[in-house]
Design a protein around this nucleic acid. Structure first.
Lengths: 150, 150
DNA sequence: TACAAAATATTCGTCTACGAATTAATTTTG
DNA sequence: CAAAATTAATTCGTAGACGAATATTTTGTA
């Protein structure tokens, strides 16, 4: 139930974002990845952002339709397609807000350091337990700050 | 990133479920709620399951189309519509698996009691921080077992 | 070299999810 | 009591998400 509420909160925020800045959460994540990785293929993008290629293609369709991204077919390997930010996309991205609610970030940052670490490692641990099919449960110890992560 | 991985793991499991048992995660959740609440309205269902009425209507459409649920218009208040499980739906539900991966449940149950509590309260706390717009952060202390919850 | 296998992106069908608009019924209020 | 406000459900349009199927290209091997 709690996880579903988190999913919903993120989704609702994404839709609010979309009204205010013209970009949804997933679109924002994809564009940030393109900016970070440079001249990147769809495959690399979908790996990096943890979504299927089909989903990345669909989101890129919309970004391209709106003029924020262009596709360029690779010349060395014609199977590959590279995504690039347009000037407009780069500009929009620069002033777009974060894919998490500001009020959540504020609250999180007000917590003690050890509390932040605890919450983060709990989520990472649940993720690991859900994604590793067979591997035994092991504590997750790598911990960073929510704001400089990603 | 970790939260997105959790969301994805739940979604992938839901689609696997759907192939095996004919019901997706959300459909399962809705049907369990109907069984639990009895002769329940769409509004009550959407509150209980934390989804919008529009979403509940869409999921019920599919459940009704497949013959697992029927809609009955209320006689005392004709705005309301009650959802009921059919015999087939009740039967299917009885043998349907849980909306979480069994391997996750196994791993979770192998953890120490205090670790289970810690993970659960962490998730609940994040949910509270994301959903309460203005309220200050307060520790969440109510903790139950993952299996008898819901 | 030729042909099978693998890789890459896209398309298609389906489901979840939402807000806004709409329709119908009930309750409140002037 | 009639108009206004509220409530309940549905419809519509849009976005995200996936697997399977498909088209094209590259790679590996017989």
């Amino acid at each position: 139930m709690s996880i579903r509420q988190i999913i919903r909160a993120i989704d609702l925020h994404s839709k609010k974002l979309s009204k205010e800045s013209g970009l949804t959460g997933p679109q924002l994540i994809l564009m940030r990845s393109i900016r970070e990785l440079g001249d990147v293929t769809i495959k690399e993008l979908s790996n990096k952002t943890n979504m299927s290629q089909a989903t990345a293609t669909a989101i890129l369709d919309r970004l391209e339709r709106n003029g924020y991204v262009i596709r360029v077919r690779s010349t060395t390997d014609k199977r590959k397609v590279h995504a690039q930010l347009t000037e407009e996309g780069r500009h929009l991205l620069a002033k777009a807000p974060l894919p998490l609610q500001q009020s959540f970030i504020n609250k999180f940052q007000k917590l003690e350091e050890w509390e932040q670490s605890l919450l983060l490692s709990s989520v990472q641990r649940i993720s690991a337990m859900m994604n590793a099919e067979d591997i035994d449960v092991a504590p997750m110890l790598e911990i960073g700050s929510i704001t400089n992560a990603e």
